[in-house]
Amino acid sequence: MTAPRSTRQREVIVRVIEDAPGPLSVPELLARAQQDLPGLGVATVYRTLKLLQEQGVVHPVHLDGESRFERAGRGHHHHFACRTCARVFDLHQCPVALPKGTVYPGGFVVEAHEVTLYGLCPECAARPPA
């Protein structure tokens, strides 16, 4: 099976995801992509994300019941979610020392882990309290 042809919409969506500091929600992705493609619709974004997931280009990150999307193949990393501005950032340093194969108390054998830290991003933390 040959890969579907590339479209301008797909190129912009992939670029927006690659340039983001962390995984994006569909509304965030749509707003950023519309800066280059004002006529881009949400249905096209959803169709493109489905295709890009099938191709292994992007994968979903589920945070607080919401799916966000980031480029696949980024290696082991975690996320920081700002409670004020709602942006999500990649953390490149793992705050948990639980390598694969670790036996956790009670006999649980660790295969992988995901961590999301919540708080204030540097920009929101620098603002004076309201």
Rank of each mutant, 00 (worst) to 15 (best):
T2R: 12
P4V: 01
P4G: 10
P4Q: 09
S6M: 11
R8T: 11
Q9A: 14
Q9C: 03
Q9P: 10
E11M: 15
E11P: 05
V14G: 04
V14M: 10
V16M: 03
I17Q: 02
I17W: 01
E18L: 11
E18S: 15
D19K: 15
D19P: 02
L24P: 04
L24Y: 01
L24E: 07
S25N: 05
E28V: 03
L29C: 06
L29T: 03
L30R: 04
L30M: 07
L30W: 05
A31F: 05
R32H: 13
R32D: 11
R32L: 13
A33D: 05
Q35Y: 08
D36M: 12
L37H: 08
P38T: 02
G39M: 07
L40M: 06
G41H: 11
V42T: 10
A43S: 14
T44L: 04
Y46N: 12
Y46L: 09
L49E: 11
K50T: 09
K50H: 12
L52P: 14
L52T: 11
Q53E: 14
Q53H: 08
Q53V: 03
E54L: 09
E54K: 11
E54H: 07
Q55H: 08
Q55L: 14
V57N: 11
V57P: 08
V57G: 10
V57T: 14
V58H: 09
V58M: 10
V58A: 14
H59E: 13
H59T: 04
H59K: 06
V61G: 04
L63W: 12
L63E: 03
L63C: 04
D64E: 10
D64P: 01
E66H: 05
E66N: 02
S67E: 02
S67Q: 03
R71P: 02
R71F: 05
A72K: 08
G73P: 12
R74Q: 12
G75S: 10
H77T: 03
H77M: 11
H77Q: 14
H79M: 06
H79Y: 11
F80G: 00
A81D: 02
C82A: 00
R83C: 06
R87L: 00
R87G: 01
V88S: 01
F89S: 02
F89H: 10
D90F: 15
L91K: 11
C94P: 15
P95S: 05
P95N: 09
A97Y: 15
L98Q: 12
P99M: 05
K100Y: 03
K100Q: 10
T102M: 04
T102P: 00
T102V: 02
V103C: 06
P105H: 03
G106N: 07
G106A: 12
G107I: 02
G107C: 03
V109K: 02
H113A: 08
H113L: 06
V115Y: 07
V115G: 13
V115N: 08
L117P: 05
L117S: 14
Y118T: 00
Y118H: 07
G119R: 07
L120R: 13
L120T: 00
C121G: 06
C121F: 04
P122H: 15
E123M: 06
A125S: 10
A126F: 01
R127V: 04
A130P: 00
